[in-house]
């Protein structure tokens, strides 16, 4: 039982630093996902609308390729272009977030019943009204679940950002591995899990609140 008191003592001593690592981690993952949302959702909408098949398959292939590059490798590829630290880390995480966001947006829009779209058109919705009042609300469950999944796994992948000097909870874990400190490894891991679970829960609530079904 001694380890529990030891661990609490560790937490009491180190909580400002743990908090700092956690906040870094949170900002980095959320920043990447937000960036992903800003790019992938409009792109997904565009792709679902365009009739140019070539553009479509090209975009999906590119994004797919990013997805298949191992995290460590993608981080390494970034360094010659973007140096070390936050920039390459967030760029890599952002690239990873693209595929699920893009795919869910695309599928979501595509899944809207064509009959409903025809009703909207026939009633005199112009294309923007149709998009914002009919298609996006109906695609919302797909899009939000894409955001949910993406956020959760980006939070977990953000731990690797510490390898290239971007900080975050990965720093705690790497340090713990380096000098044999179980409290550090444990805290880093637990905090990453806690953030991921909280994010999942929070987005899940938004999903429930805003989805029509």
């Amino acid at each position: 039982m001694e380890w529990i008191t030891d661990y609490f003592q560790f937490l009491a001593e180190r909580y400002p630093d743990i908090l700092k690592y956690t906040v870094e981690h949170l900002l980095m993952s959320i920043g990447s996902v937000v960036l992903g949302i800003v790019i992938a959702i409009p792109l997904g909408i565009y792709l679902s609308k365009t009739e140019k098949k070539l553009v479509n398959s090209f975009a999906f292939t590119i994004v797919n390729v990013f997805q298949t590059i191992p995290t460590i490798a993608l981080l390494a590829i970034m360094i010659p272009f973007l140096g070390i630290g936050l920039k390459p880390a967030m760029t890599a995480l952002f690239l990873y977030s693209l595929l699920p966001l893009l795919r869910n947006t695309y599928t979501g829009i595509k899944s809207v019943d064509p009959k409903i779209i025809e009703a909207a058109r026939g009633m005199g919705y112009n294309s923007l009204q149709q998009l914002f009042r009919v298609e996006l609300p109906l695609a919302f469950p797909y899009i939000i679940s894409g955001i949910r999944v993406t956020t959760v796994y980006i939070i977990s992948w953000t731990t690797l950002a510490a390898v290239i000097g971007a900080g975050g909870l990965g720093g705690l874990i790497l340090s713990g591995l380096g000098f044999n400190s179980k409290p550090l490894i444990f805290t880093g891991t637990i905090m990453a899990i806690v953030i991921a679970v909280l994010a999942d829960h929070l987005i899940g609530r938004v999903e429930k609140r805003l989805s029509y079904k």
Partner: peptide, 21 residues
């Protein structure tokens, strides 16, 4: 066409109500 459509009522097959409204 947008103005035209708004001035004409339209009922479609399979109802076509907006499920989210």
């Amino acid at each position: 066409p947008i103005d035209l459509r708004r001035s004409i009522g339209y009922v479609i097959q399979h109802i076509g109500l907006f499920p989210h409204m």
